[in-house]
Computed example of a mutant assay.
Amino acid sequence: MGRLVGTISRGLRAPIIHQGDDIANFVVDAVLAAAESDNIVLRDRDIVAMTESIVARAQGNYASIDDIAADVKAKFGDNTIGVIFPILSRNRFSVCLKGIAKGAKKIVLMFSYPSDEVGNHFIDYDLLDEKGVNPWSDVLTEAEFTEKFGNPIHVFTGVNYIEYYSELIREQGAEVEVIFANNPTAILKYTDCVLNCDIHTRVRTKKLLRNAGAKIVYGMDEIMSSSINGSGFNENYGLLGSNKATEDTVKLFPRNCKELVDRVQKMLLEKTGKHMEVMVYGDGAFKDPVGKIWELADPVVSPGYTDGLEGTPNEIKLKYLADNDLAGLKGEELNKAVADAIRSKDSDLKGQMITQGTTPRRLTDLIGSLCDLTSGSGDKGTPIILIQGYFDNYIDD
């Protein structure tokens, strides 16, 4: 056994970043200042991560509701638009919906139920059973939904999203009709022009709609995928990953993140002599067991990372090893046997029993989730994360 402290995740405070700031210099300066302030010894394979928010802010990657409306109008014309599977989030969807509505004459808004894609619940599954409703087959009008379930208020925000989203649409001059269904093709009874707003199932949803005869199908990833009148854009994700900036603008997911992290990595090597890994992170990927919310409302956890963060962990389960192969050993003999097992482990342990119980996820998803939990989403003021010892194991000094 080497060092007695393993992984350390630190949130680094930094000034507020503004449009046009050099984000690479901003991040490098913050890391060097924190290291000097707290006597942190930087090492090879330390991880420096920055939240996607400061990257997009520095890039000035913003779009207004007028920009969104112009793109929607160009793609859908005067057709009634089926807007399906929105998530229940004022931060994530309200301004996007304003823009969509401003570019439409009528919207049929189709909610999934009993929850949205990321786990915001209208109602509990138990209530579905009580009312005899099958969410996989039953399509409900707003009146039918209200008759069975009342006017559901979100447990954390206190918002009635049915009323809230409907009013946002009306305020932009569009007509709105609300239905509830989980089969995307249910919308085709109302209109064959569809904007699907789901995040992680968007490819399948588009395929099902097109195969069922939809005339026009776009996803949120295809709205604001190019600049409208000089606006920001994201060629890969469009409006996905956006957040409310003001009442009339959204901050889009950042662009060119691979180029940025490679530049930061090079600058850190030049200034410290250490080869560190660098990533941009958004939402973590984990589920709240009480609120039932699955955090990941971004299209990916990390839109850009250095090559050393590619892959999945290749770890043996020490508990399994100690309870099975080395069950008869104790003390220094056990420590030596564990160390020997770690040194001699295969370069690819996939499928071996000795990995049972380790986390089978991508490194970027694991590390990005750690970063998101470390930085928080409020007023901590730590948009840059320094992680040390993540790639260490039991025997490293």
Rank of each mutant, 00 (worst) to 15 (best):
A341W: 05
I123A: 11
V55S: 04
Y305L: 10
D396E: 11
R202T: 13
L252W: 05
V203A: 12
V217P: 14
N183P: 00
V338G: 02
L326R: 07
L239R: 05
W294N: 14
G150K: 11
V55Y: 06
L140H: 01
T312I: 11
I342G: 00
D325K: 15
K292T: 06
Q59H: 12
V176Q: 06
E175D: 13
V72S: 03
N196M: 12
I87C: 00
L321H: 12
D379W: 13
L334E: 04
N256Y: 14
M267S: 06
V194L: 06
N39A: 13
E277K: 11
L88Q: 07
V301I: 08
N196H: 15
D126P: 08
Y164M: 01
K73V: 00
G282E: 02
D307W: 14
D288K: 06
Y165R: 05
T141E: 05
G378S: 07
F85Q: 06
S231Q: 02
V83M: 03
A285K: 11
K287E: 13
L363M: 09
E167A: 15
T312F: 10
K271R: 15
K105G: 01
A69R: 09
V27S: 03
Y320S: 09
F145Y: 12
T191H: 07
L42W: 01
G351H: 14
L97G: 01
G119A: 09
S302N: 11
F156C: 04
I228L: 06
S226I: 15
A339Q: 11
C193Q: 08
N324A: 01
I17F: 07
N234G: 06
I100M: 04
L326E: 08
P184V: 12
A14P: 03
I223H: 03
S9P: 00
V261P: 04
G103T: 04
I354T: 02
I40S: 00
I84L: 12
D396P: 07
I385S: 03
G6C: 10
D348P: 03
L366P: 02
N335F: 10
